[in-house]
Design a protein around this nucleic acid. Structure first.
Lengths: 343, 343
DNA sequence: TTGTAAGCGTTATCAA
DNA sequence: TTGATAACGCTTACAA
């Protein structure tokens, strides 16, 4: 393997000079610069990033810890992060913690051993995710989507607002009993989205009934299962607000399987847009988040920190947008009884 | 920051002994072991992976270079790779080359600078992707999905077989003129899948007409656009085989927009399963690949190499599976004219 | 079994 | 402006 020493010898200079040329860290005689560069070219020298990392105590790597790589929300965020990071010279280390606290903790520990420059994390839990190993090593942290009870940069959407506009929309489209399927209690997003739904109901002069609120898991199965419970109710809802995309997918599976017609028997609004929301019939009304932009914003903010910005931590809040499609607009005004037709 | 020297002093031993204990690289007196371990515990020592990497000339990192992180195929593969890698103690560095040759080449160069242990790559191009920077550094390479004209491990599906069963199925379900929308010429998968389609037609005694074969881009837009072209034809097809999932999505968009009824006016089969293939109406018949298993197989094979296996390179070929849904099974036998109804 | 010390490939300090 | 040289934190001959 060709190392810096080889380049130095070939160019007839010291390794210090080669390093200066490569990093533009000091003025070097133009003649030497060109000798060095041509030697680099000729020998196809590539700097050893590990050695550089040991010396400088940092590597140009940003870690991204997420809870579900198969969720289109995260893949889009991931693309945003990756695009900004790589064009700024950073690589992205992807860590899929799978919503598993232990796995997440292992990643956090591992990353504190690697000298990664910064970490973007969508924590599995508000209370239990422990990032102190990173903090102790002085590694910059930024939360995305979900928050953490520490003082750090954050990028998220206005979750309450998103739920409010979704719920309001359902009510103004003729719904009278709106149910909400939300995520696990330990996720800040699940709580905020449920809160927005409750607020919208109350603002409309309605009572938020506890038996119309379902805590689930943000996964397909959870949405599927919750629909099963809903359909068994004495007085079932005529509209459902599902607070993330994977549960919306599960809900659609269940509704199709039980042959429930949307939107006449039950209206549906999901949180997070879906790539195929307008291919299905009826199209699914969703609260869209600017996922890619959230990813780029996160990476940009973190990189600013890495380059020395030490201003107070900042929370960047994006606004959601309601994409109205057919699933939430009732075509008949006669209330249909919502009952399971087939099992 | 606490380093090995601190642990050594706290335990009253040399750094060499600490290292031996931590790596179990030699027998150490049990008494010293426990002294070292408790010092590690007490000081919360974490080994510096960069330093170790410099010394051992390798880091426990596997890079994954893919062309489209938003494609469910790759996210699933990615999960498979990640699961196996992380349980074997490797981190995964995700590189989304976006199908862009220049970006891909930059990643390859960067990775050869980092001392990654191995690279799993789905190359952007059969001919133009150049992995020599990795080969020169002795970094292990494994291709996934698409192949490369070098002698290395590979994991892929039997593409020709997949196309054959898809095409045969369309023919036996009543289709008479089957079109094929495939990917770019420079992708081995695009060529192989087209070849399988041609073979199936010929095996059925039909001629593979050139004007029914479309080279596209494996992206949504490509599928959408191709449908537009198809609908303009003098003698349009009564069935379409689309060779990847994103183009299938685009095709469905177009068919819905132009109000073409599936499967009566045109049958449809896609390659790669879709998470929502059975939510849409009609459900989409697809050729399913065992994506997660392909990812785990790839990671396992690569890690075997990293741990010293130097047997001859091996290609692991998986078999596709046809998932028949309603999009490919004609309900009426009367041939419907396929014409665009709205624009 | 344990310790000493060299060295991995850089960058950064200090003289010249 | 340039060059010796000492780190960076770890692993591993080699000695003891």
């Amino acid at each position: 393997m060709v190392v810096m020493k080889d380049v130095a010898e070939a160019a007839g200079v010291s390794t210090a000079t080669v390093s200066r040329v490569l990093n533009k860290s000091a003025d070097v005689d133009p003649a030497l610069v060109s000798r060095v560069m041509s030697a680099v070219e000729r020998l196809k020298y590539k700097p050893n990033l590990t050695a550089r990392g040991l010396r400088t105590q940092s590597t140009p790597v940003i870690a991204l810890i997420i809870s579900d790589i198969e969720n289109p929300f995260f893949t889009s965020v991931c693309r945003g992060v990756e695009d900004v990071a790589s064009s700024a010279g950073y690589s992205v280390m992807l860590c899929n913690a799978d919503g598993d606290l232990a796995k997440e903790q292992e990643y956090i520990s591992m990353l504190s051993s690697q000298n990664v420059s910064g970490v973007i994390i969508s924590p599995a839990s508000y209370d239990s995710t422990d990032v102190t190993p990173l903090v102790e090593r002085g590694i910059n942290i930024l939360t995305i989507d979900r928050e953490l009870p520490i003082d750090c940069d954050a990028v998220r959407i206005n979750n309450q607002l998103g739920s409010q506009i979704a719920t309001q929309h359902l009510l103004s489209s003729g719904a009278r009993r709106v149910a909400c399927i939300t995520g696990p209690r330990f996720a800040s997003t699940a709580r905020d989205r449920l809160a927005g739904y409750v607020q919208a109901l109350e603002a409309a002069g309605l009572v938020a009934e506890a038996d119309l609120q379902f805590y689930s898991d943000f996964k397909d199965e959870g949405g599927y299962h919750a629909i099963g419970l809903l359909l068994e109710m004495e007085d079932p809802p005529d509209a459902i607000f599902v607070t993330n995309n994977r549960m919306t997918t599960g809900a659609l599976h269940a509704l199709k399987e039980f042959d429930v017609s949307i939107p006449d028997e039950v209206s549906l609004v999901g949180f997070d847009d879906l790539p195929w929301a307008d291919i299905v019939s009826p199209g699914v009304t969703t609260v869209r988040q600017p996922t890619y932009e959230m990813g780029t914003a996160a990476a940009r903010r973190l990189i600013e920190r890495l380059e020395g910005d030490d201003s107070a931590p900042q929370t960047i809040v994006f606004d959601p947008e309601l994409i109205v499609r057919a699933s939430s607009v009732k075509t008949r005004t006669i209330r249909q009884p919502l009952k399971r037709k087939s099992v």
